[in-house]
């Protein structure tokens, strides 16, 4: 293995240049009062931190978490059965079926978001006029991020040894209980990775809330976008750091709960 250690070097350089350094710079920016991203005439200041007191920022983070929560919830609700039935079906080319199921995702995501907006605002669909509501944002988030939930679950289910299900039936355990006691505990890791993969973009994205929300639904992503658009690197960096912290915290909490819950 040691002979191939060298292959990891490019990734390390990548990590340092494109991940570690930017974070350091970003944290440094939070303490600087400056004009755009230029360091000329920059001075040390806590100005950005003072602006954090604004309760609207907490409100935006809370909104983002709410949207992300419901998106994750519906993705699990729709994604698990979908992955389950495709994986346990006797179809020959299951992967192709799965790809067809998520056919709409093959088009550009911005295009899809705009299409949903057209549908929501169309005069032909009265009663479907949801544009500008939280529900619509969550709905479009779910349609956008569903594949990220289905695929990890499907992969885990495909690897699940079908003999274990037979063994459970053989031991006198009926089908549904077998699902609860064998299939679900053994595929829950797929659900967990799906949850993280959906939660992250759903909590930080801005395109959906901006387009579908018609500017009425504002998430933390929208704030970030507008701040950086105004060239305010100082405050923008601080919000970015804050969002990263909140998300890390949520994931830590989630994985702690994950570990404590012992499968039985």
């Amino acid at each position: 293995m040691n002979r191939f250690k060298g292959f990891a070097i490019p990734y390390f350089i990548w990590l340092i240049v494109l991940a570690f350094l930017p974070i350091v710079v970003m944290i440094a920016f939070t303490f600087l009062s400056m004009n755009g991203s230029s360091l000329e005439g920059a001075s040390f200041s806590f100005e950005a931190y003072n602006r954090l007191i604004d309760p609207s920022i907490a409100k935006l983070i809370w909104n983002s978490l709410i949207v992300a929560f419901w998106t994750v919830f519906f993705c699990v609700l729709i994604g698990y059965p979908c992955a389950y039935f495709v994986s346990f079906s006797k179809l020959k080319n299951k992967l192709l079926i799965l790809l067809l199921l998520i056919l709409p995702m093959w088009s550009n995501s911005m295009l899809r978001i705009v299409s949903w907006l057209r549908l929501f605002t169309s005069k032909y669909f009265v009663g479907f006029n949801l544009a500008g509501s939280m529900e619509a944002v969550i709905f479009v988030s779910v349609t956008t991020y569903l594949p990220f939930m289905i695929f990890p679950i499907y992969t885990i289910l495909e690897k699940l040894d079908r003999g274990l299900i037979e063994a459970s039936n053989d031991l006198g355990v009926p089908k549904f209980k077998t699902f609860l006691k064998v299939t679900l505990p053994l595929s829950i890791s797929g659900v967990y990775s799906g949850i993280i993969m959906v939660f992250l973009p759903a909590a930080t994205g801005f395109a959906i809330s901006q387009t579908i929300g018609l500017g009425k639904i504002r998430l933390i992503g929208n704030l970030l976008q507008s701040v950086f658009e105004k060239n305010n690197y100082n405050f923008g960096s601080l919000i970015s750091v804050l969002v990263s912290l909140v998300i890390t915290l949520v994931i830590l909490l989630f994985s702690k709960f994950n570990k404590e819950k012992k499968p039985c």
Binding site: G163, E166, A167, N169, D170, G172, V173, V182, L186
Partner: peptide, 18 residues
């Protein structure tokens, strides 16, 4: 199978890994 008072020892054992 779950209603039959018959149990099986499988070739690959099929013990629950969790």
């Amino acid at each position: 199978p779950h209603k039959r008072p018959i149990n099986t020892v499988f070739q690959k054992y099929e013990l629950f890994p969790n």
